[in-house]
Design a protein around this nucleic acid. Sequence first.
DNA 1: TAGATTGTTAATCGATTAACAATC
DNA 2: TAGATTGTTAATCGATTAACAATC
Lengths: 224, 224
Amino acid sequence: MPNSGQIPLSTLERLPAYLRAIDALVSHGVEHAPSALIAQRSGVSSSQFRKDLSLVGASSGVRGSGYDLEALRDQLREVLGSADRVGFVIVGAGHLGHALAASMSFRRGGLDLLGIFDIDEAKVGSEIAGIEVRHDSQLATFIANHGVSIVVIATSPSSAQDVADVAVKAGAQELLNFASVVLHVPPCVEVRSIDLGVELQMLALHARAGLGALSSQSSQASGM
Amino acid sequence: MPNSGQIPLSTLERLPAYLRAIDALVSHGVEHAPSALIAQRSGVSSSQFRKDLSLVGASSGVRGSGYDLEALRDQLREVLGSADRVGFVIVGAGHLGHALAASMSFRRGGLDLLGIFDIDEAKVGSEIAGIEVRHDSQLATFIANHGVSIVVIATSPSSAQDVADVAVKAGAQELLNFASVVLHVPPCVEVRSIDLGVELQMLALHARAGLGALSSQSSQASGM
DNA sequence: TAGATTGTTAATCGATTAACAATC
DNA sequence: TAGATTGTTAATCGATTAACAATC
C-alpha cells in the first residue's frame, strides 16, 4: 500500500540515495545485500535505513540474509512514483535553468519536463534538453492547457514574484523557487525555496567553526 | 559572544532569510520592527524567530517596541561571518558551475570565490563572474598554495570522486557535492551533497499526495 | 500607568538511534 | 541447529510551538 501521505518528508528525502546505492550494486551484478551495506553506500546508519523502509511499507527483506535488490528497487521506485507522472515547467533559461533542465533529462521520479520559458526574445525558439524555449507571455496559457502543476522558478529575484503570480493564477499547485526572495502565495499553494548561495554559506560556517563543532547530524548531508 | 559552535544547524540555516527580510525593510527606510513582522517576511513564526535570535545570542530587541534593524543586521552578519572570509573554488564550468559562481558574485556571508576549474581545455582561459577558468590539472597546486578549504564539485558524476580525491589530498576540508553520487572521503572531511533532481522529485511527491497530506513542516521550506 | 513585545521556559512534537525479539 | 539479519519497539535526542513573566 503506497500510503505516501503518511511518510515523513525526512524519510522521503533519503529514498533517492537508497535507489542510487541499489542501482550501483545491481549494475555490479549483486542480487542480495544486507541493510548495513546499502546503508553504508547511502551514507546513513543501518538502523535508519531499515526504519525508513518500514515507514515506507517496503518489505523485501529476509531475516538472516538481507534484501532482494531488484524487488526493493521496484518498491522504492513505486513510492517515488515512476508510475504516474507529473508535468512541470521551468521559467528562466539562464545557466540555472539549463542546469535544472539537464538534471531532469533522464526523467527521474515521475517528473516530466514539459516546457521552458524565458523573457528574453533572443532565447525563444532555441532548444534545451530537447525542449523548445517559449516566451514568458505564453506561460499562463501553457500551464492551463497542459495541466501543469509544478512551476520551477529560475529567474532573477526581481521577476520571481511576477512569475509566481501568473503561475498561481493559471492553476499551478506547487512552486520551486530558486530566486533569492521569499514568495507570497495563497496558502493552498506549496512553495519550496532553494538558495544556492545559502548552501555555500552554511558550508563556510562549518569550516570556520572547525569540524564537528557545529551540531551537524551527519557528515554526508543530502537533499537541498 | 559569537559562540557559533553551539548554534543548531537548523537555526543557522534560517539566518540568511532573516538577513534578507531585514535588508528589504531597511532599504524601505524602516528602522524598527517587531519580531512578528520580520518573521512573517522570512516565512517563519515569530516564536521561532525570537527563539533563533536567542540561540544565536543576538540581543537588539527592546520589549514593547521591537528590534533595531541595523543593530540586528550587524549581529546576524557577524554570526554568519562577514568578518573572516573563507576561500573556495568551483570545479566544473558548465551551466551549474556558472550558476553557482553567479550566486556567489555578490560575496555573501564571508565566502570568497578564488578559482574556477574545468577539464575542458576549450573553457580554460575564459572568464566567469570575473574569474579566469583554470585547468583541472592545476587544482591540487592551487588548493595548496591558496589555502583553499572548500571545494564545490559541479562536475559530471563520473569525475566527481576523482576531483574529491585530489581536493582532499591537497588539503581541502569541506566538499560541497552537486554531482549525483555518494562521495567517499576520510572522516575528517565534511561532505554535503545536493542533487537538483532530487529536490524536484520531492516536490512532485507533494503534488501527487495532495496538498498538506505529507507531513511537511512548513509551506515555505528553505535551504537546500 | 497601560499596551506592546521581548526573551525564556515548559510542553509538544517529530526524527534518530539503540536494542532485541522474531525468524529465515 | 547456529548465525545472521530483519522489522519494530522503546529510549534518546533535538527542534518547534505556545505561553507568559519580565519590562520597555
